[in-house]
Amino acid sequence: MTLDPRMLDFTALETLRLVHDLGSFTAAAERLDVNQSAVSYTIAKLRGCFGDPLFVREGGRQVPTERCEQLLAGARQMLDLLDSMAQADRFAPASATQTVTIACNYYERILLIPRIVAALRAEAPGMSVRVINALGDGHHRLLSREADVLVGPFGRSESGFHTRRFHAEEYACLMDPAHLMAGRPLTVEDYFALRHVLIDYGGGWKSAYLQELEAAGHRLTPTLTVPSPAGLAELLSGSNLVATVPRRLGARIADRLAMSDCPFRGRFDLCVVWTARTNASAMHRWLREVILANCTG
């Protein structure tokens, strides 16, 4: 099947982008709300047009060829330009009915999302809010258009992203009030003598305090590893276990526990991140302003 590249439409380019980002014909079809055969047909046309397989199947995923990556670089620019042209210059929250998607993790869902959602609902009662996991690569959620905005310790400096910092955070140690080290300053030696609960968020994410202690030549050997801070207070209460968590989160989830300064503070910034694609959108500007106004402080 051959096709003159000048006959391609934006739907074909969007299909190419989705298969690339999602790694699956099936997932792309679900996102486009079409049959998988329609996606296969479009990719077949593109293969004929560009004389390249574009994707090869490896390990259950559709892996892009080098030619596909080159084509996507130009296709993304065209799709972003089309989005920019279609975006309204004005936005009226009171009458809006769109769905906005925020990518974040546990910290933000506990401390920030309730305030953000309340503010969004107050200004735009007809809008819906969807919250998805950012894991360790939330910027990919932005690039794949799964999310409108990313909230958390995900500042990006490379071209194509915009970042606004709203406050700084650091790590502290949580433990039962009866723990022998409760209320005492922890030295590095004290810290490594503790029985640690390590929160391993997965997705390639490594907490800032771990990066700091490893940079100093240390390695943490945990007694217990869990995937989330959920249920942490119950794990620590009445035990000799200690968890290192962001200070604000620790204060929120464990008011009956003791908190001590961590010798590895792991200071980090919390940010709102978005892409150039949504930078000029009136609706997205409003969304970011609401988020920042309710996250600062």
Rank of each mutant, 00 (worst) to 15 (best):
F166I: 01
L135E: 13
P246Y: 01
A75K: 12
D148Y: 10
F25I: 03
Q98M: 07
A122R: 15
L270Q: 11
A29R: 12
S260L: 03
V151P: 00
Q87C: 07
G126P: 01
W274R: 03
P222S: 08
L79K: 07
N133R: 01
G136P: 02
T244C: 11
Q87K: 01
P263C: 10
Y191Q: 12
E108M: 06
L8V: 08
A254W: 02
L32C: 12
A28K: 13
R67T: 14
V56N: 15
P222G: 08
L71W: 11
E189C: 01
A178N: 06
A251S: 13
A29I: 11
V131S: 09
M283S: 10
P53C: 12
E146Q: 15
A28I: 09
A172P: 00
G48V: 04
S228M: 02
G217C: 13
A86F: 02
I291F: 10
I253A: 04
K206C: 13
A243D: 10
G51C: 06
D9C: 00
V226M: 02
R67E: 15
M283F: 05
T278R: 14
V245S: 01
R90F: 10
K45D: 12
L135C: 11
R17K: 14
V56R: 15
R165Y: 09
P227D: 07
L224F: 06
R145P: 12
A73G: 05
L180S: 15
E289V: 10
M175K: 03
N35L: 10
R90Y: 08
L287G: 09
L8W: 05
H284R: 10
R164W: 03
M85G: 04
S281L: 05
F25V: 05
A251K: 15
L249A: 00
Y191N: 11
L292I: 08
E214L: 05
G202W: 01
F161N: 03
E108C: 05
R252I: 00
L257W: 03
A193C: 01
D33V: 10
I253H: 04
S239D: 08
R109E: 15
D148M: 10
M259H: 02
A75E: 12
L46G: 04
P227K: 09
H196F: 04
Q62G: 01
R67F: 09
V129T: 14
P263Q: 09
A92E: 13
S84I: 09
T11W: 05
E14I: 02
Q62Y: 11
S40F: 12
E169V: 04
S84N: 11
D176N: 01
Y201S: 12
G231K: 05
D200S: 11
S237I: 02
L32S: 11
E212L: 12
